[in-house]
Design a protein around this nucleic acid. Structure first.
Lengths: 194, 194
DNA sequence: TCCACTCATCGACATTTGTCTACGTTTTTT
DNA sequence: AAAAAACGTAGACAAATGTCGATGAGTGGA
């Protein structure tokens, strides 16, 4: 089960892990199974864990005054899951994270992650790359959100993330794009005509 | 002039820099002065430099098919400036970065930054923190953008970034928020009544 | 099998936001 | 000092998006 994590790390660092390093990592990450709709993190709690998705699908979202959910992030296999704001600042999270499908995770504490970054340079490189990529993806999405209308946002999204479209229902995608499910339905109808 | 950079680093790392380390850093960062409206980076170029703002104000924006500008980021004193996507991926940038006021920068090449991260652990810590903070800020803004209507976005923004409001004109703020200057004007008018 | 629930779509209507043109003021440039 | 440009606001209208209630198809659980 840890293999998918090791191969992920090896793909994202300059050289392969030694078996000692693998052992260290293995010791920090516990396999956990979540059934559909279970919480990984609840609003108000401090995020103390980081998960690596071996199999499954998850979402991160906030809930507004009216009870409406707003999807901040979607996750699939080989993605890291956590609320970084809460984990880094040690503040109560404003988000919920839960599973959308039955999901297998490798879970480590934030403290152990920091430890591994200190002990294994390759691990540090990998997390640095992961931080940078997350930021880049976030900036792209932001740019798309402030620059385009709903139809172009959906088109871009569908092109760049076909797997999300396959795995998550439309009202989730709509929320991720910052529109209502009704608007997404209209947008798709228009797009069909072409 | 390098002092503001040193004190920034010392504020964001576990222990203070040694004078050897300061010398190394000093050698990599060249002071540069930009007059208002000068480009730091143009769309299509690969971002090869990273700037630290000693004094001044800058903006990062994309330009759409119709020639409209969309503000992706605003920068003031003690902020790092670069297009991280271009710098990390070595791809042509989709953004422009220019000065909004006369600005004093400390500029290093991306290659030198990587070098410093390798040579000075404290510098690595600082950039890691900076990456994480950038991501957190980006996520917050994204959440606000997809969750709120224009008036709440502006209210939140004004509360969290009063300095931006003082230094940048309204049409820039509007673009940053993903609305037109006309809408922002209306929103402000409504807010006055309360 | 039946029931409850989720999901996507639709239409009518309300609200928000964008577009465009115009105007007066302020700021910058010549 | 004069001219030009940038800036904020305004109103009228158009377009995009949200809201709500209803429907039917599909899904999973009891």
């Amino acid at each position: 089960m840890h293999e998918s994590l090791f191969s992920y790390i090896n793909q994202n660092a300059a050289s392969p892990l030694t078996s000692d390093e693998e052992a260290l990592i293995m010791a920090s990450f516990q396999p956990k199974k979540y059934r559909k709709k279970q919480y990984f993190l609840q609003e108000g709690d401090v995020c103390k864990y980081v998960g690596f998705i071996v199999k499954g699908a998850m979402r991160q979202y906030s809930v507004d005054d009216k009870g409406a959910e707003h999807i901040v992030n979607l996750f699939l296999e080989n993605w890291w899951v956590s609320d970084r704001e809460s984990a880094v600042m040690l503040t109560p999270s404003r988000y919920n994270i839960d599973t959308w499908e039955d999901t297998e995770l490798l879970v480590a504490t934030v403290a152990d992650m920091v430890d591994l970054i200190g002990k294994i340079p390759l691990f540090g490189q990998m997390t640095r790359l992961m931080d940078q990529r997350s930021f880049i993806a976030s900036q792209r999405r932001l740019n798309s959100t402030i620059s385009n209308t709903a139809d172009k946002r959906y088109e871009e999204f569908a092109d760049n993330h076909p797997k999300f479209i396959q795995r998550f229902p439309q009202h989730i995608i709509a929320s991720y794009l910052g529109i209502t499910k009704d608007t997404l339905s209209r947008v798709r109808k228009q797009a069909m005509k072409k």
